[in-house]
Structures are given as C-alpha cells and as structure tokens.
Design a protein around this nucleic acid. Structure first.
Lengths: 213, 213
DNA sequence: TGTACATCAGTGAACGCGCGTTCACTGATGTAC
DNA sequence: TGTACATCAGTGAACGCGCGTTCACTGATGTAC
C-alpha cells in the first residue's frame, strides 16, 4: 500500500525499499507541506509518516517526539525569514527608506508564503517558546532589523532610539501580516493593498521620532 | 462525583438536582473560563461539561455542536470589545487624539484580559470566519473605529481617507496586541511598555496622511 | 385544590476515531578479517 | 575478493487516551382539566 502511494520524489530519495536514506529531511519536508495544507492544528505526525511512506514508528529513530520536528521547522523558519530580510534590504539599499520598506514587504511575503510556519514562529505554541534554541534564533532574526534601523539612523541623523523604532516597525508589519493571513482584513477592507500600506507608513514611522510630541 | 465538584456558584444556578435551570449560560461561562485557562487548542467540550457538573451529552440540548458554543463566545467577544472601545473614546474625548489613543489602549487591554477570546475572534479558526453572524458583528466593531477617525478628521481638517487611517491604526494596535499576548516581545524587548508605544505612535499615524510623500 | 399528562432538559453508556508513543522484531548496510 | 557480524533505520501491531457525538432513557416541571 505504501508502495503504491510512493511519489517519484520519494523513490529518488530512497536508497532501497527498506532504508529510506534521508528520512529525517523527508519527514521535515512532509511536515512542512502538511502544515501549510492543513494548518498547525490539523497537522499530525501520523500524516507526515503516511506522506513520507513510512511507518508511524519511524520518526522516533530521528526525533525525540512530535515537538522536536516542529522545533526544527520553526528554527528553519527564523533562518529563512532572516535570510529574506537581509536579501531584501541588501538589494533595495541598506540604511535607506526603500531598504526598510523592502524588509517590511519581505516580512509580509514570508507570512503569506509560509503561513503555517509563520504562525508556529510567532503564534501560540507554548512548548516551542521555551526552547532556547528556538528563541535565540528568533532573537537573532530581530537583531538584523535593529542593525538596519541603526544604520538608517546614523546615516540620516535620526535621534530616536533605534531599538524603539525597530519595535514600532516590527509591530506595524506584524499586525499587517497577521490580519492578512488570518483573513481579518477581508471582512472590513476586502481589496486592501497591504504592501502599499507598508510603503506608505514605514517612512513616517522612521522619521517620526524627530517630530514627535 | 459531580455533586462533590459542584461549586457554590453552580448550586446557586441550579433549580434542582436534575434540571440545571440555566445550563446554556453556565456552559458558555465554563467554556470561556477553560478557554482562558488552557487556550483554544486545549479546550474541550467535555471539560466544559465537567466544569458545569453535567453529562457530556447535555450541551446538545442547547447547542448544535461544539462550534456553536465557540461561535457564541466569539460574538460576545466582538460585542464586548466594541463596548470597551466606545466607552474608552467617550471618556477620553470623541474626535480627539486622546480619544483615539484610548481606543488603542482599550484594544490591547481587551487582548490581555480576554486572550483566548481575542484569538478566537482574530486568529485562525476557519469554521468561525464563515459564519455570517460572527463576521457581521466583527464588521460592526471595526465600523466604530472608522466613525471615530471620521469625526477626528472632520474636526481637525485631516485630508486623508478615514478608512485608510483607521486601517493603519488597527494594524498597528493589532500587531502590538498580538506580539504581546503571544509573548514575542519578551524575547527581544522584555520590559516593553506597549501602551506607551501606542500613545507615542497614534498621533503620528493620525496626522501623517498630511505630510506623507 | 388535586390529578393526569405532555414536554423536554437532563442522564449515562456507548460508538468510532485518530492520535502519539512503545515494543519486539527484521533486514539492509558497511566494516573487519 | 568473500564471508561473518555488529549496527541501527526501518516495520507493523498494539497500547491507552480523550475527544465529539448519538442513543434510548428518566424524571422534574408546568399546564389543562
């Protein structure tokens, strides 16, 4: 039965009918796919096994438990997001407003492309929050935003606290991403162009520290 | 056994040992409490029955299924939030910046006080989003924010589109609430004063439409 | 005021389900000789 | 090059669990007479 449901990809990955060859990665891949299809709550380890064409006991040769797979996916997510942010700002111009805007756009794009992983990273999965490996990766991810704001402040003589500005940008962009993927905008502003809103708001948030009060 | 776990409140609610008297409300109350203790995912209808001191079949005399209870709680949540927003702006001054700030503070306070319900209202519970009764209540809730922004714009001669400004305010404040209740700030800015951040950002978002570009 | 009866909010036992995890096992692989 | 063997990534059957929901039932309530 499992032979019949085996996809070409699986066959390539397998070295033989018995040993999978790369089950660890295959399971993470299957989990990511199911996560994005069914959402965090609809995801089960058993499904991931079925998808990978392997018995439900097999994962325990590679992972402590179900949470360890989610942990790995979450850490990968923070690394992916971080890479996307850096790539975006590097291309659009570090220390410039377009660079900051590009980071905001990249954040939202990531949330759209990897909705389930995004929810895992920032949503309420209490077990994951406590794992040092996960939260330190997340911290590093945010650190890159601060660096960029600092660079912007230096170059443009903005006097506000870069950390505070970074938190404001993050807050806005995270709100946009959340309301978008949770489909809350749809009720109220169906055709909203979130990326344009970010383009419009970012420069204001960046320079406001100057003219505030 | 269920007699032993009955709380004084339950006894007051009961008219006799057999008929509960007010089971519908009692179940909604129990569900809300369990929701806030254990979160949306940890909540089960069976637990709510246990809490109400009633068999697991009893709810089906009052609700179609589990989702109908969650639906009721969500609608209540939108009404509560709407009432809080109106009360806040009325007290602080309709059409003024302090009034708008007060609405933002009230939004975040609601998320803190009613975290689980907040997640139900805005998070990913696909079944609820499709129910017209739920989404129209949510729409009404946002409508009040727009009204306030319109009033502000009228009084202060702001030329931007009130709807767009309201969306920006909502986005920021929702991001703040989300990052706060999901404990994402803690990793990165443990002592952050979110309400102060809203106080600081709101006036800027409100007048920015003027000086944009 | 007292009795017969319809109503319907409760009971409690049972159901099928899918889950995460464990267990003793099997068989492919790669290494030592 | 060929064989013996240790390793360990897989199997598949089973487990206990709690869930949402259904079922025939029971007994308290309120109404009609």
């Amino acid at each position: 039965m499992s032979v019949m449901t085996r996809t070409p990809t699986d066959i390539v990955k397998r070295k033989s009918g018995y040993h999978h060859g790369n089950l660890r990665d295959a399971l993470v891949g299957a989990a990511r796919q199911l996560l994005s299809e069914r959402g965090v709550d609809g995801f089960s380890l058993s499904d991931a096994c079925r998808q990978a064409g392997v018995s439900t006991a097999a994962p325990y040769k590679h992972f402590r438990d179900k949470n360890e797979i989610l942990e790995e996916i979450t850490v990968q997510g923070f690394n992916d997001l971080g890479a996307r942010l850096v790539a975006a700002v590097d291309q659009a111009g570090p220390g410039t407003i377009p660079g900051m805007v590009a980071m905001g756009h990249a954040y939202v794009s990531f949330a759209i492309d990897e909705t389930a992983v995004f929810r895992l990273m920032f949503g309420q999965h209490p077990a994951l929050k406590q794992i040092e490996h996960v939260s330190s990766t997340g911290r590093g991810c945010f650190g890159q935003v601060i660096e960029q704001v600092e660079l912007y402040c230096l170059r443009n003589g903005v006097c506000g606290d870069p950390r505070a500005i970074a938190l404001e940008l993050w807050t806005f962009v995270h709100g946009a991403a959340s309301l978008l993927i949770d489909e809350d905008y749809q009720k109220v502003a169906p055709g909203i162009d979130v990326q344009a809103m970010i383009t419009s708001v970012t420069p204001r948030l960046l320079r406001l520290q100057v003219e505030a009060k």
